[in-house]
Design a protein around this nucleic acid. Structure first.
Length: 721
DNA sequence: AGCACGCCGACT
DNA sequence: GTCGGCGTGCTC
């Protein structure tokens, strides 16, 4: 094939020397052992589709732009879409002196597609190297990553960094095991406790795509129920993917899968703490189609499961479902995108219910999958509330810091088994709330959270307006309080009061997985509660104030979620133990508060539905959609000014960003030490979320990237006060 | 991000 | 005249 046929278009504009070279000189890294020719200058190009469109993975230039490179004939077979490549990328390469200059440094990238011609008006450099022939970025995964990038106004390159594991040559060199045949459809087991449960499994097993929001009954059965749903999907010949908040939970579901599937060959656990090599080995097994069921933490949401039939997420209200690297996609949303794009079933399981889940039910996209009231009552422990106000008035209780009823419950329960004591995490400091009804103090203008700038001076954390005359929307109260609970001290005192009983603690630093079925006081922070074999005899929830007093939009929802999680580990009220008594939960919180009521009635769905309606009225997410723009003041103002916002969009703020807590590692959106950044919130009407994301992405693409100086854009921010 | 080009002021 | 400040823009 003649070289002239392969000449890039517009080569007339190229300096003479370069024109003769056809493609710029490129040199392979010397350290690569079995080097092919060290230069591709003058080499023949691939006969078919000699142009590779490459997404450059590192460097600040990406902005979703693809770069065209020439494919030398020797690389033709290997340079397939989806493989990792190295390319020369550098400034000033357009002008070549003496034909002797090398381009910039070698960068990693992925071939997105092969095409016959380039739009680039200039000489194409050749691919420097095909790193491996493994097709890591298949068409399905690429489409998903593009959709996620669009959804979050982020770049494709950023999303690819979240979706693709680091390459490991050793793991890649090994063959993956051959796939096992689909299993038989599983028996419904404890799914039979839900009227719609067996039907859901049958639909999965026959290849349908049912979608459900599952409110799991309290107790130890849900890991097995996940495994059964996955097995049913596998039985249809399709794959399944379940994302859970943490490694501990992933291991529980993994163990259940091993039981239900009768062995380890049909599923994998994908978590960060496997280490890079093993993680890549398992990821490859999924990508190559030898394993079709995956359970894992958030990075697993991108796992390229073949012929996906079910995506699932457990406990979607947990913060760890949101990645902290930009664009911070949330596992729930990524799995929703997958369910739609890949036409799969969808199962969102939770002991409680988030507003987002309530919205899926409300708009009819997913069906509720719930047990009958009677069964819920039997499976849940008895909940007793203790009004803190009452405690304050009761002199004896004040001295002891715990009311009589709590003492009695603990003393009695300790004769029958372990007792769980939930205490607030350090650093959960409540902000401002109505003294009378505990409703968080909100701005009259935009409903943002009020903060005390100094004594008697309230400022809105969203729009920055002063609030000179606050009064409570709920009850009309005019006094505020910021309260701190001495729950940790209470827990210590409990330990001293029962000296013969061992005290175990579980928290951020050392999380216990389980405790034996023996009397013990188990003190834990929310989310770190060990499972008690046989269930706790009782639980004491001491963190009501700390959880509810936060000004966060989700304070009530989070509090209820944490309480349900702890209470679900307690023996059911109607599930009698050997002594004929069920479990009891005592919660120290104002009994008229809605999250407390929801716990007492064990009605998370009702709570979420009401919360959703209220947020809709107040213009809060997820009905209205928001995006946060964070960065240096001028950069924030500039980006917002150049964004073609959808009709009816509001800009709240900007306000100075509170500095990140010392000690926390820096995250995207955090100002560098010593700098003050600002944050503005953009709010759009229902249905305008994707228009907002598109407008922001377009504005970002239009301005020149300046790295550090660029504002961070966060769609659907979680921490908006 | 790098890195080169380019359009201003101070120097041998 | 030339050296070099860093502001602007490009990298297939």
């Amino acid at each position: 094939m003649s070289r002239d046929d392969e000449r890039p278009r517009d080569s007339a504009e190229v300096p003479e020397g370069e024109q003769l070279a056809l493609i710029r000189e490129t040199v392979r890294k010397a350290k690569v052992p079995k080097a092919k020719p060290r230069t591709w200058r003058g080499a023949a190009l691939a006969a078919e589709r000699p142009v590779a469109r490459v997404l450059v993975d590192k460097g600040p230039v990406h902005l979703d732009k693809l770069w065209d490179y020439a494919v030398p004939a020797e690389m033709d077979a290997e340079a397939r879409p989806g493989v990792r490549v190295r390319v020369r990328f550098g400034a000033g390469a357009g002008k070549v002196r003496e034909g002797r200059r090398e381009g910039g440094g070698l960068l990693d990238g992925y071939i997105i597609e092969r095409v016959a011609e380039s739009d680039y008006r200039g000489p194409l450099a050749a691919l420097a190297q095909v790193v491996s022939t493994e097709q890591v970025l298949g068409p399905g995964l690429l489409a998903l990553c593009r959709a996620v990038a669009d959804r979050y106004a982020g770049s494709l390159a950023d999303v690819l960094q979240l979706a693709l594991p680091k390459r490991n040559a050793r793991a890649e060199g090994e063959p993956s095991p051959p796939p096992l045949p689909p299993p038989e459809p599983p028996a419904p087991g404890s799914w039979a406790r839900y009227p719609a449960g067996p039907g859901f499994l049958e639909a999965l097993a026959r290849g349908d795509r049912p979608r459900a929001v599952w409110t799991a009954l309290p107790g130890p059965h849900w890991p097995r129920e996940w495994a059964t749903a996955v097995a049913a999907t596998l039985a249809s010949g399709r794959g399944a993917l379940v994302v859970v908040p943490d490694g501990r939970t992933a291991e529980r579901v993994d163990a259940a899968l091993t039981e239900v599937l009768g062995g380890p060959g049909r599923h994998v656990l994908l978590t960060a703490d496997l280490g890079p090599e093993e993680r890549y080995r398992r990821w490859l097994a999924v990508s190559r189609g030898s394993v079709r069921a995956v359970v894992g933490t958030r990075a697993a949401m991108f796992a390229p499961v073949r012929d996906l039939g079910l995506v699932g997420i457990w406990d979607d209200g947990d913060r760890s479902h949101s990645d902290d690297r930009l664009p911070q996609p949330h596992a729930r949303d990524v799995l929703l995108l997958r369910a739609v794009h890949e036409k799969t079933g969808f199962l969102l399981g939770d002991l409680g219910r988030t507003v987002e889940a309530a919205q899926l039910v409300e708009n009819g996209w997913a069906r509720p999958l719930e047990a009958d009231r009677e069964r819920v009552r039997a499976a849940a422990p008895l909940i007793r509330t203790v009004d803190e106000g009452e405690v304050a008035r009761d002199a004896e209780a004040r001295a002891a810091r715990l009311p009589t009823i709590a003492w009695q419950t603990v003393r009695e329960a300790l004769t029958r088994g372990p007792v769980l004591v939930q205490v607030p995490r350090r650093g959960y400091v409540p902000k401002l709330a109505c003294e009378r009804c505990r409703e968080p103090a909100r701005c009259a203008h935009c409903s943002g959270p009020l903060e005390a700038r100094d004594a008697d001076h309230l400022v809105c954390g969203w729009c920055g307006r002063d609030e000179p005359a606050w009064h409570c929307r709920e009850c009309g109260g005019v006094r505020l309080r910021a309260s701190v609970v001495g729950a940790r001290r209470t827990a210590e005192e409990l330990g001293r009061a029962f000296p013969s009983v061992p005290v175990r603690t579980s928290g951020r630093d050392h999380v216990l997985t389980s405790v034996p079925d023996r009397p013990a006081l188990v003190v834990s922070t929310p989310g770190a509660e060990p499972v008690a074999e046989g269930g706790y005899a009782a639980a004491l929830l001491l963190d009501g104030w700390a959880l509810l007093g936060r000004p966060d939009l989700r304070a009530g929802e989070d509090a209820l979620r944490h309480w349900l999680e702890a209470a679900s580990l307690v023996r059911g009220h109607g599930e009698e133990d050997d002594d004929g008594r069920g479990g009891t939960v005592v919660i120290m919180a104002e009994p008229t508060l809605r999250p407390v009521q929801a716990l007492v009635r064990w009605d998370p769905a009702g709570y979420a539905a009401r919360e959703l309606a209220e947020r809709s009225d107040l213009g809060f997410p997820p009905i209205s959609r928001m995006a946060a723009v964070t960065g240096p003041a001028e950069a924030v103002a500039e980006l917002i000014a150049s964004t073609r916002l959808p009709e009816g969009a509001e800009t709240l703020g900007p306000v100075p960003l509170p500095p990140p807590p010392p000690g926390r590692p820096r995250r995207p959106g955090d100002p560098p030490a010593g700098e003050v950044w600002e944050r503005a919130l953009l709010r759009v009407r229902p249905g305008q979320g994707s228009a907002l994301a598109a407008a922001l992405k377009e504005a970002k693409a239009r301005r020149l990237a300046r790295g550090d100086r660029d504002p961070a854009v966060r769609v659907d921010p979680l921490d908006i006060g």
